[in-house]
């Protein structure tokens, strides 16, 4: 039976409400990694508006659905930036290290040092590298899911991830070498 074009079929609203409840926090986190926090909720609202308009396409599998929602959010973010650079990948930001992570007693000095190095190395990565690293380590996606967010194959995603890891290691080595000259050596560490 044909569905009137201005009215979603019965049951769609229920499905959408369930999807919204399940995905909203995760989509907000996904977006918060990629835009300033003050803009994130607007992007998420726009994302769910798109999802609502395409409610008939909601994947039945929860994993597929979440990745699909991320992919739509990514499209919304890219649309916002269209015209700046057509092939741009999405830059990913780090937490504000200065404001939130003062070393405190008992924290592993190696971890503190690595975090500082990461803060220095991250901006040196291409946005494409940042994006695949975030998908792999923050967004908690499997390779096929992360690949579907980017609209590429799992093998292609793995290729990018391999290269992004290597780029990160290279930049960490560079900033680590530089900062080691000025960083106080933790007590008891080999010199």
């Amino acid at each position: 039976m044909e569905t009137p074009s201005d009215q979603p079929p019965p049951g769609d609203e229920e499905r959408f409400r369930a999807a919204f409840a399940a995905w909203y926090p995760e989509v907000l986190r996904f977006v918060s990694r990629r835009v300033h926090p003050t803009h994130a909720e607007d992007v998420v609202a726009e994302t769910f508006l798109v999802l609502w308009r395409r409610v008939a396409d909601l994947p039945a599998d929860p994993g597929d659905g979440r990745a699909w929602a991320f992919g739509v959010a990514r499209g919304v973010l890219l649309n916002d930036r269209r015209g700046v650079r057509r092939r741009e990948a999405l830059a990913v930001r780090l937490a504000d290290e200065a404001g939130r992570s003062r070393p405190f007693g008992g924290e592993d000095p190696d971890l503190v040092a690595r975090r500082l190095d990461l803060v220095a190395a991250w901006p040196r990565l291409t946005t494409g590298d940042q994006e695949v690293l975030a998908l792999a380590y923050w967004d908690d996606l499997t390779s096929p899911e992360a690949a579907s967010v980017l609209g590429i194959s799992p093998v292609a995603f793995r290729l990018r991830l391999t290269r992004a890891r290597r780029a990160l290691r290279r930049h960490l080595d560079l900033v680590g070498t530089r900062s080691a000259r000025t960083r106080p050596v933790p007590e008891g560490s080999p010199s």
Partner: peptide
């Protein structure tokens, strides 16, 4: 590095 990355998640 993985732990440092996790700690720097801005979300």
């Amino acid at each position: 590095t993985r732990a440092a990355l996790t700690a720097l998640d801005p979300a």
